[in-house]
Design a protein around this nucleic acid. Structure first.
Lengths: 239, 239
DNA sequence: CCAAAAGTGTTTTAGTTACACCCATGG
DNA sequence: CCATGGGTGTAACTAAAACACTTTTGG
């Protein structure tokens, strides 16, 4: 019996199959720093550690749907950018059983997080510390408001690291960064997002022109309010 | 019962689970063109169509192992670069049952393909036609030697498109292209690989210097043989 | 010597960075 | 009118592209 005949006659119910889950890396920028939504575990394994929100993939929903559903159910968030990151399938990533997890990145402005944090069943928006180390970044560290490190469950530190790496890589050749801003934003806010994601500082005039030359954004003529200095123009993404 | 308690008490055997497979995009460059290894299907669905080599992920092997095993078993290839591409999980991508497929890219020089094509149980090295259209590429088309289009099974045209897109995107900021060459190569051969992958033509002196400035390769002092003109120096990847 | 492709030096261009400066607002 | 950050013009630098050219081999 050839391999292809085997595949045809294969009855999936005969074989033990791995479970498939989605894990979400929900990122935003708060006070000039990258932050990620984490949930504290109440049970073993990794009791009291912090985990990315996740859930099983239903037999009747595709992967993107599952990610979106889990985002609503676990994090009470219905909006924002969503993109598949990578699939993690090491044998012992979950000590209970074989679990293959499709990780997703979700980006949104801080504004959207308010309802999620009100429900707050063990949810926390943790500051992310990722040393620069040439764009790939070193080991990630998630910290609570008081600066203490939050221990991460499973292989979620690795997932987080890959997420930051992906975000950094795409930031200046795709418009992905705008998903972290409100619809209207100033150039200073945009620069702040880039600096938070990349962990670097930019020269203001250079950044300004580099961004404008890409042709992604346009000025609205409106100005920000409430500043005690010259108000900046509000920009928006074209189209 | 909270969502997290549910997750804890979840017995995976209670629920219907999707099958998980790996699909391989085995790419090489032959006569200045990208080519992919395809296998003709003998059974329904998509009988007589051409498919990427693939297979189920065992409960006791991680994803990379599964990809490597399938590459050996289906394509008789034990060497070459291997990288996870993307996970495809649409509901009806396989009409028989719910299948989530983790796609992998594998790159190797044409040389390695000889044993695979000797076994030749329905295996074919198909030329790939991907219009340029600004680096993302348009719809892919796989062609046999005589130029006729090969119909692709399942969502494999989409997978192939994503593979080419990934390869194009990484080609000039990572050393991924060298996986398509023998250990020793001339700058002309390297240029040929870049032109085949990107579907463009380069100016020879510009390409030469751009590559050398990256510092990835070094000359060996050796020269190619058998040319009826000035033999080019053989280079190799550093480290 | 000729054809063919390897390989080099010089100029042009474009894109990014750095520096200096002016502008608009609240207090 | 002063402090603060928004915004603009110009020059310097660097990396890529284009062009013209010399070199080395087989026949």
């Amino acid at each position: 019996m050839s391999e292809s005949e085997f595949l045809e006659s294969y009855d999936p119910s005969d074989y033990e199959r791995p479970s498939v889950t989605v894990d979400l890396v929900l990122l935003t920028v708060v006070e000039g720093q990258l932050a990620v939504l984490l949930q504290q575990r109440r049970e073993h394994p990794f009791k009291d550690c912090w985990a990315l929100p996740g859930g099983f993939v239903g037999i009747d929903e595709d992967l993107d749907e599952a990610a979106s559903r889990v985002r609503s159910a676990k994090a009470h968030l219905d909006m924002g950018y969503l993109e598949q990151l990578y699939t993690f399938g090491s044998l012992n990533r979950d000590p209970r059983t074989r679990v293959i997890s499709v990780a997703y990145i979700s980006l949104m402005p801080m504004l959207y997080f308010s309802p999620a944090l009100k429900h707050a069943d063990g949810l926390v928006l943790a500051e992310l510390n990722v040393p620069w180390e040439g764009e790939t970044g070193g080991p990630v560290m998630a910290c609570s408001e008081d600066g203490t490190e939050l221990p991460l469950a499973f292989d979620h530190a690795e997932i987080l690291g890959q997420a930051v790496k992906r975000l950094r890589g795409k930031l200046d050749y795709t418009p992905i960064g705008f998903a972290l801003l409100d619809e209207l934003f100033t150039l200073r806010e945009l620069q702040g997002v880039h600096e938070a994601v990349l962990g670097t500082r930019f020269h203001k005039p250079a950044f300004r022109r580099r961004i404008l030359d890409k042709g992604w954004i346009e000025g609205t003529g409106e100005r920000e309010t409430g500043a005690s200095f010259r108000p900046a123009e509000l920009y928006k993404l074209k189209n």
